[in-house]
Design a protein around this nucleic acid. Structure first.
Lengths: 242, 242
DNA sequence: TGTACTTATAGTATTTTTAACTTTAAGCAT
DNA sequence: ATGCTTAAAGTTAAAAATACTATAAGTACA
């Protein structure tokens, strides 16, 4: 691709047209996980200036011939090796001074991963990667604190109305595990019996003929989230609500 | 501001660093209004190529030293003369091919205006401006159809959970007017008595000692939306729901 | 083998909310 | 004064949310 500012733009602009095509564009990913009953977010420690050694969201400049969402998926894959992960754009951050040296507008994406047993790949711009509890975060580089908070807010809002939360669980899970996840996400307690009833009545869980193993008490049935069923129900007007 | 790509970027990039700073950035505004019981959107007819004579959202390139939201407010003000209007960013559109000639990433904002009695200002890039029913839209330039639909979706979603809808009404309104607005927004019917009860119990409306005039039947009381009260209630955990 | 313990699962009762409908009141017009 | 229209308040029945109770099914250990 070799395009440049075109002459059809009208002459009202204050600056030469070239100067309107000087924006840098980046994506930043808030990668959520779920571990030991807590919602976590994956951060990297920068190995470069500016903000060297500080924790930051993982992100990168977008290539001139790259779609925004592809850039975001790329960043995630480079760090975690994971593909085809649930991902959602939540906000564009475009204040003039958000980047100390250049004019870079960044678009925030969040993704939800369930398998935490992979190695975050250390790369040239990051010394290390680490999961942090979303209620106990370090100081962050750039305006990443703002971005992260907005991401958390969006996630918490989304999981109420859409069955997005399941992405944080392994494929097979028990009803109690699901309940604990939602308690962590929404910061509230549910009555066990009622939660069970409510979620089962939605008919979006497929019961498996398997039970949890290696537990020292009665093992619970395992369930699977049935995306197909949900989509069908959604078309018929059903709306998820917890 | 005269910044340029800085040397702290690492060398993994495929292209010379300069070429990452060639993005154009624009904002596009979906301006909603409410007239004769219908939700409207303000569109302009382009007077320039590309897409000359076609209807489009109103938008513009962002200045290199301008915040995103300021750019959006500017666009609205230039077209309508209105300041301090409710405005909300809803999505960034960044596909490579969304603009036929340049790489321009655009950020969508929507705003809600109530006073429809002003003159949309014809400008150098727009022949005319016109309100369209959101259920009866013309063909649109660029990817503005996608942008507009996403804006409508976001608005419809937002008005359920936040008292944003009031922005579409005049300062003083009757309960029936409010009901009709929400019926238009959500595409459903409410029971008059129940709607009334529900909204009044929220305690976010301030009853005025005035009534609707020039009606050939019993005039209804006028109410005002009480933002302060809502904000206080919100802090206490109240959440708007219709 | 059986008893204690833990969690799963099912069921019931109570309260609260939602939804549908009815009644009365208030103003305008003739 | 009568009829018409809409405002505004009240009533009732159904449904949903919530709190609570009872039973079942497995493990662990004496």
């Amino acid at each position: 691709m070799m395009k440049g500012p075109n002459s059809y733009y009208i002459s009202k602009y204050k600056l030469p047209l070239d100067e309107y095509f000087t924006f840098g564009l980046s994506v930043d990913c808030v990668i959520f996980g779920y571990q030991e009953g807590e919602i976590k977010v994956l951060l990297v420690q920068r190995s470069l200036e500016p903000f060297k050694d500080q924790w930051a969201l993982i992100g990168d400049l977008v290539e001139p011939d790259q779609n925004l969402c592809d850039a975001a998926n790329n960043v995630l894959e480079r760090l975690t090796g994971l593909k085809n992960i649930y991902m959602k754009q939540f906000f564009a951050f475009g204040n003039v001074d958000r980047h100390p040296l250049d004019r870079v507008v960044t678009v925030g994406y969040f993704s939800l991963v369930n398998s935490l047993n992979y190695n975050p790949i250390a790369s040239s711009w990051a010394k290390s990667a680490k999961w942090f509890n979303i209620n106990d975060l370090p100081e962050l580089a750039f305006d990443h604190c703002t971005i992260l908070q907005k991401g958390i807010e969006t996630l918490k809002n989304e999981v109420r109305h859409k069955p997005t939360g399941f992405e944080l669980l392994p494929l097979k899970f028990t009803l109690l595990e699901l309940q604990l996840l939602y308690e962590a996400l929404l910061g509230c307690k549910f009555d066990k019996s009622n939660f069970r009833k409510k979620i089962l009545e939605m008919n979006i869980l497929k019961p498996l003929n398997e039970t949890k193993e290696n537990v020292s008490h009665r093992p619970a049935k395992l369930f699977k989230y049935d995306v197909e069923r949900y989509k069908k129900l959604e078309e018929e007007g059903f709306s998820f609500q917890l």
